[in-house]
Computed example of a mutant assay.
Amino acid sequence: MENLLRKAVQIKKQFFINKLIQSGVYKKNNRHLYEWTLSELEREYKQIKQENKKLILK
């Protein structure tokens, strides 16, 4: 069970890393994306997604 949860977290982290890289984010505050926690990645992804929505609606 523990390995399954760890794998699921890694898959989700990789998803957010890929999306952030596609958006042009590679590093922030001198930290590479792979150093971020899942929560940090998800927060940054949601923020960028929200900003892009605002740009599209203008």
Rank of each mutant, 00 (worst) to 15 (best):
L41G: 02
S39Y: 04
K53Y: 13
Y45W: 05
K49V: 01
F16R: 01
A8L: 12
M1H: 11
I17H: 02
E2Q: 12
V9A: 11
Q10M: 13
Q14T: 08
G24W: 00
Y34C: 14
R6A: 13
W36R: 03
E42L: 01
K27C: 15
N18A: 14
N18Y: 05
E40A: 07
M1Y: 10
V9R: 09
L4Y: 08
V25T: 06
N18I: 06
L38Y: 00
K28N: 15
S23I: 01
L33T: 03
E35Y: 07
K12Q: 15
L20M: 02
Y45N: 00
K54Y: 15
K7Q: 15
L4K: 09
L38S: 03
L41P: 00
R31L: 14
I17D: 00
Y26K: 08
Q10F: 14
N30Q: 12
K12H: 11
K13P: 05
Q14S: 14
G24T: 02
M1F: 13
N18S: 09
E44W: 01
L55D: 12
K28H: 14
K13I: 02
K49F: 06
V9M: 12
H32C: 12
N52V: 04
I11N: 12
Q14L: 08
L33K: 01
K12W: 07
F16E: 02
R43K: 08
K54I: 14
E35I: 04
I11C: 07
Q14Y: 09
Q14N: 13
S23W: 02
K28D: 13
M1R: 12
A8N: 14
K54R: 14
E35V: 07
L57N: 10
E51R: 03
N29R: 15
K13S: 10
I48S: 05
L38A: 06
R31P: 06
L57Q: 11
E42T: 00
S23P: 02
E42H: 01
R6I: 13
